[in-house]
């Protein structure tokens, strides 16, 4: 599904990613953990196609295609989805309006018929249950005045509607209380499928109690310094990140 080879990325003069290697097979959930400033969000944004990042080396294959050569909208239409850490507020249009425009852009690309208002309404009503979202919310201006939890639920709702193959969740747990976290994680878990892969990016082990990954990678200073099974999260929880910060740790 996703194959990242020796990916090096700069922002301005600063090298943020310094040779990332990562392979995600269909249906797998990989967690990327790491301290602040390790490059987690940069990786998420580069995969989604954000400008202002300069890829200096390496390649990313997505279902065999050169992902980095694709525009953000091409990636989205081909099934890449990024759940934002800080979703944008757009006063003036509702979630419903925005999401229908997005879904139809994706459907058009896939050669499917565009959904009309009624069909879309039926679809979104089914999906909002997944994230236990109030229906009033989706008819309000997109994310405007939403709480942190409501914004994150909205991201997962969008994911459910757009039906991606590769979902990247960027710090989806940040700013959530325990109830919101449980709901958001529940939504994500319900969307796990053999043909859908996920990259779950988080600073805290807490989220991984709810979304149990197949693999965990620790990102530090632009490199993956440790990979392991889900038990690695517990180790990080008790030891923190410091023990991984010595150069030798990366080799273990």
């Amino acid at each position: 599904m996703l194959e990242i080879k020796n990916l090096r990325v700069k922002v301005g003069e600063k090298e943020i990613l310094r040779g990332i290697n990562l392979t995600v097979a269909a249906g797998e959930v990989h967690a990327i953990m790491g301290p602040n400033g390790s490059g987690k969000s940069t990786l998420a944004h580069v995969l989604a196609g954000r400008e202002n990042y300069q890829v200096t080396a390496g390649e990313v294959r997505y279902n065999g295609k050169d992902l980095l050569a694709m525009s953000p909208e091409q990636r989205a239409r081909d099934g890449v989805f990024l759940a934002f850490q800080y979703p944008v507020e757009i006063p003036g249009v509702s979630t419903t309006y925005f999401l229908k425009a997005a879904l139809n852009a994706v459907r058009k690309h896939r050669g499917q018929e565009e959904l009309d208002a009624m069909d879309f309404l039926t679809l979104i009503k089914e999906k909002i249950n997944l994230v236990e979202m109030d229906q009033v919310l989706i008819n309000r201006p997109l994310n405007e005045g939403f709480s942190g939890g409501e914004k994150k639920r909205n991201e997962i709702l969008q994911m459910a509607v757009l039906d991606p193959r590769l979902a990247i969740l960027d710090e989806t747990d940040s700013g959530l209380d325990i109830d919101a976290l449980r709901i958001v994680a529940g939504g994500v878990n319900a969307l796990r499928r053999p043909d859908r892969s996920m990259l779950v990016i988080t600073h805290y082990q807490r989220l991984l109690n709810y979304i149990v990954p197949d693999f965990i990678h620790v990102l530090f200073d632009g490199r993956i310094v440790k990979s392991g099974a889900k038990e690695l999260a517990l180790e990080l929880e008790s030891k923190g990140y410091d023990w991984l910060k010595s150069p030798a740790a990366g080799l273990s």
Binding site: R50, P72, E73, G92, L99
Partner: peptide
């Protein structure tokens, strides 16, 4: 970027944002 990352073409994204601004 948010809109494009959801599949909207740049022109479509600009039109939606301008529309939203006025709306």
């Amino acid at each position: 970027f948010y809109l494009r990352s959801r599949g909207l073409a740049p022109d479509d994204a600009r039109s939606l944002l301008s529309y939203a601004f006025a709306r």
